[in-house]
């Protein structure tokens, strides 16, 4: 059974239909890439999934529950966490406090292990590879570290589904390499306190750096002018005529 199911989602901004009747689903432990040209509606779509924006019509089901009318933080408590395209750290707090915020409010897992939020935060920072920055103010981080902090904070909510909006944006090749590895590790490891039985994590990743993205995703959804024009494995999608014309270009990736 797919645990995220989107049915006929539509969002209009005035006369512009940003997302038009989009339906797709994500299975447990699956990494889905969401690609498409600028203005295709990718960010609007994931913001609706994160419940930061309300759709005009359509339904979102998560774990079989209709979450279309929940608000942002309630969706987080159900297990959907997201990172922002432009990183939004708590600037005047040190990194460890940034990660502690979601730890203090997160839903408790099945195992009910009562560890202090500080220890939880340190564990997550280790996973993401920023424990040495614990006491640095978030305002002083480099772009690469900010991206990792963003992921750490999303991970600290103990999600079942993580949505990453352009995680590779503004990173150098070395950092991209590290982050791809991290994403692969997370898919396997996930959050240990998760109420789900499997430790694994599903992800939706929006990204323009296709060559890197294709290495880590299982399936790709291509969005163009608010509609899904193709869906399939990375190999299928890169061969697709429509996708080449609308987004990738003749030279390929």
């Amino acid at each position: 059974m797919s645990f995220l199911q989107v049915k006929g989602l539509t969002k209009r901004f005035g006369g512009i239909t940003a997302v038009n009747d989009v339906s797709f689903s994500v299975r447990r432990n699956e990494i889905v890439g969401l690609i498409g040209p600028n203005g295709a509606g990718k960010s609007t779509l994931v913001q609706m999934l994160m419940r930061a924006q309300n759709p005009d019509s359509g339904k979102i089901y998560f774990h079989g529950e209709d979450i279309t009318r929940l608000n942002n933080w309630q969706a987080v408590h159900r297990g959907i966490a997201g990172s922002f395209q432009c990183t939004r750290p708590f600037r005047r707090l040190p990194v460890i406090a940034n990660v502690m915020v979601p730890c203090t409010v997160r839903r408790t897992g099945k195992k009910e292990v009562k560890t202090s939020t500080q220890i939880q935060a340190i564990e997550i920072m280790k996973k993401v590879g920023i424990p040495h920055l614990a006491k640095t103010l978030a305002a002083k981080l480099s772009q690469g570290d900010l991206k990792r902090l963003e992921i750490a904070r999303a991970l600290a909510t103990c999600p079942d589904l993580m949505i990453l909006d352009e995680p590779f944006g503004g990173l150098n090749p070395g950092e991209i390499e590290m982050l791809s590895q991290l994403i692969k590790d997370l898919r396997a490891g996930g959050c240990s306190d998760s109420p789900l039985d499997s430790g694994g994590l599903s992800m939706i990743i929006i990204e323009h750096k296709l060559s890197e993205l294709m290495k880590i995703v299982d399936r790709v959804v291509v969005l163009c002018f608010g509609e899904i024009i193709a869906e399939g494995t990375p190999a299928e999608v890169t061969q697709n005529e429509k996708v080449i014309e609308a987004y990738i270009g003749k030279e390929g990736i």
Binding site: A52, N71, V76, F84, P89, F90, V101, V105, T157
Partner: peptide, 23 residues
């Protein structure tokens, strides 16, 4: 912890909500 959440709301309310805080 309450103080920590207050400061998170001060720094970025949207990010606080995305971290699961009932702002």
């Amino acid at each position: 912890k309450i103080g920590l959440i207050f400061q998170a709301i001060r720094d970025d309310e949207i990010a606080a909500r995305a971290s699961g805080v009932n702002t």
